[in-house]
Amino acid sequence: MKKYWFIIKTEIMSNLQYRFDVIFGFVSYFILLFILFNLWRYLYSDTSGLINGYSMSQMMWYVVMTEILWMTLGGRKFNTKICNDVKTGNITYNINKPYSYIGYSLSMHLGDILVKGVLYVLIGMLIGFIFLGHFPSLSIIEIIVVIIASLLATIISIFIIMALGLISFFIEDATPFYWVYSKLILILGTIFPIEYFPTVLQKVLNFSPIYVVSYGPAKLFVDFSWDKAITIIGAQLIYLVITYGICKLIYQKGVKRISVNGG
């Protein structure tokens, strides 16, 4: 484990000098929140009313949270990196090193996004506070649970995107898989909570990755209960094992195919 922590630390060091992309990210984050906040203001003509169990401020904080998770993730960059690692054969140079490629890529990406994540949290909270004048009422221990759920959500997302990238072992261009995934998350996972969708779709979404990577942490942030916390973190742990297992399986099958591509 120590070596993976070192990879995270090294990647943070390596990235501290290049933060222009973060600044551009902040601008689009701000614009997005601004548009959505205005949309909710329009929908909630009666600001004290509830729609599908959410008040206007809960909806706004929900979006702040899901967008923090999504913007921090930097999924496209990570997916492109994994696809390129496979396509260019770079992945082979990791095979004879004493670490696992999955652990290495996960640590690298966590190191890449950790500082960015902290900045997004600060900015998201600031924007939310300016617009709404208050924070969701959470105790310290509840905040810690939300942070844990957010970290788990990020790690699961990284595994999913890694698995989508590792498909490059088998087909020429695996980027469309990520494109579809990102659009699904955007439509079904970031703007509206699951309760906003038709009952049939809700049942599907409750078992989908959206529940653990996006809805879960945001729901806990705006409407915390210990029951939900246990269900959500439980589901996340199951997803963590499954997504890691899938990555490992694809990687092991794929690495054997490298021999087909030759030296």
């Binding site: 082979t92 004879n96 490298i258 030296g263």
Partner: peptide, 13 residues
């Protein structure tokens, strides 16, 4: 050459 080295360094089987 490369194939041989890759087999020796456990990259290829």
């Amino acid at each position: 050459k490369s194939t041989t080295i890759k087999m020796m360094t456990s990259i290829l089987f």
